[in-house]
Design a protein around this nucleic acid. Structure first.
Lengths: 197, 197, 197, 197
DNA sequence: CATGAATGAGAGTTCATTCAT
DNA sequence: GATGAATGAACTCTCATTCAT
């Protein structure tokens, strides 16, 4: 595949990404993508053979580009609490961004997609996030910023709460206040009192 | 509509329910339901005019039948902790039941269904559950079973964790151990140490 | 068929008539009529077996009720010109009444309905009208009201013009002025100068 | 759209034209046209989206191809009477051609098609024909071929008679003799005595 | 590579017609 | 007689997928 092909493939993926953000996964058709890309019907099939394949590649691109969620936060002299708060704020921003989010599409894709469980990117991301948060909390505990008896449990709890907020945002709808309250609750349970924003 | 019609309508709803459990919401067609019910094409339209309508009525039936989640738990001499634990166990059972669950369908239905947000059953259920848990925790605090500084915050936290577990169960998949760990974490944070099963 | 049946049949025909006035003939369904009559689906079939049959009976009723077009006009001491003018005015009224007219339905019914040509009511009505107008003109000529060399030809011409106006009213649309102009033209060609309205 | 597409579109329109001649407008379905064209179900939708659209394009094609009704008649040395007679003969031929005519379809299309009244081709054609006939008669009067006091009135009368004949041909049925008689009547009223055929 | 016409399967929906009650 | 549930045929329309150019 030549350079041009790679360019085009990337273009298709980026365009398809927008379509998935708009419509979720299940109801997106090859036609939707063809039209969004303004390419020929047959043309799409030269690069991809199904919406599932396209979606998986969109996700791959996503995770490649996603500078690690924490990478921004972890600066030289940031404290553990700083980093955690920054991370939670990032999550909050993402949560409240109802559109321009692949969340729905991702959920729909993984729903009952037994095959996709093989290399469940979602799971890897979740587990890795838990680990990072755990380390973070441990670091915070070590330098006295946090109080925590079960760092791993707390890390997991935080992630499940975030998942809960994420799905709630897409279904019942949540306000900024709701997210703030949850973040505050998490921080308090770690013994962090002050907050920002 | 005669008695027989009501019977048939109920039959359709129950059959459709299974279809939704199988396929979620978005990809279920009127034809799917027609075939599952083994009735004629036109027959279904005598009762319902869209999958959305059918789904809403399935949900209504569901919530009517669902004796309140707590009703079973609340017996005369049960303590607050007992009731909370029972509730969490119920949720666990539900969570792990990957199939035979409307969870996916419900999520898909509420995804981007702005109109359905009007009377968002989901939201009402969530809010009501938070309130009940809050009361429960307060009762537990009052009689010394629980230790808790922010009952409402804790109740909300519990519900979001449960939501997080629910969506995780349907996407990344979770094990019984995972659920147990979370329940344990919750109970510990309330100062309840021993547990059962 | 009992008295009640006859009543009901008549009721159906009168209601169906309105439906035909609304929708023409070709696109009227048995369902349309059932709904307009607010009777049961099967009920209609007890009396009629098709829209064609219903329409024919509507027409029959129509022509029975239609006191002869001329009957009103022909009073004791009316002159031929009076009667003709009255007739033309009646036709004008009918022409301009775009809705509440069976015109479209009648045309649609007779279009390519080879079978219906057997007893083509329309033709009989047309021919009979020509004859009456002819007699009228002859009478007018006899008493000096009209000037006319070819009474039958003129009568036919009048009827075709009326038909032309009728179909034009339903397709390209015509104004009152247009009809007046045509009537005036006809009367002038008969040597009648003054007019009324 | 390439050359081939244009060919195919034209082919569809020509085939559809036959279907409309056969069945009128209202009862023609996309399926009818698909089958007549022997193309695939979806194929037709690549070119047209409704029978209305197809019909309008058939009419457009029709009027493009129809070298003006008079163009043939108007030769260098033809007299006004010649041209008028030729025109009427053309109309006669058209009138008597019960099948192979779009007349019914056109009428059905314009029946109660309020929207189509915007650019009512029919009306434009009618008005333009009236004007041409008027000019023709005026020319005939000028050179002594015709006698006529109200050229415009006569032109309109002729057109309404032709309309009357046209709709009669499609409903009650008319014979050649009937048409001849009407033509004769018209010509006589213009003072033209001899005729042909 | 790229196009877009073409096909055919399949979903939605409406009705004429029948029939048990 | 009357009802209205039920059926199945017929139509509309949309897409995934292929293929000649």
């Amino acid at each position: 595949m030549g350079e041009k092909s790679i360019q085009k493939k990337r273009y298709i993926l980026e365009t398809a990404r927008k379509v998935f953000m708009d419509k979720g996964f299940k109801t997106v058709t090859m036609k939707d993508i063809v039209e969004a890309c303004d390419i020929s019907r047959g043309g799409l099939y030269l690069y991809f053979e199904s919406t599932s394949q396209i979606f998986l590649e969109v996700l791959k691109l996503e995770s490649e580009e996603a500078d690690d969620v924490f990478s921004d936060s972890i600066t030289e002299d940031a404290t553990a609490a700083d980093i955690l708060i920054l991370f939670l704020k990032e999550q909050k921003k993402e949560l409240l961004r109802k559109k321009n989010t692949l969340t729905q599409a991702v959920y729909e894709f993984y729903f009952g997609n037994e095959l996709s469980k093989k290399d469940n990117v979602l799971k890897r991301q979740f587990d890795s996030a838990v680990k990072i948060i755990e380390k973070l909390i441990e670091a915070g505990v070590d330098n006295g910023e946090f109080y925590c008896e079960d760092c791993q449990g707390t890390a997991r709890n935080i992630m499940f709460v975030l998942e809960g907020l994420k799905i709630s945002a897409q279904t019942i709808g949540i306000t900024e206040a709701t997210v703030d309250r949850e973040i505050l609750f998490i921080l308090r349970s770690l013994g962090v009192e002050e907050e920002s924003e």
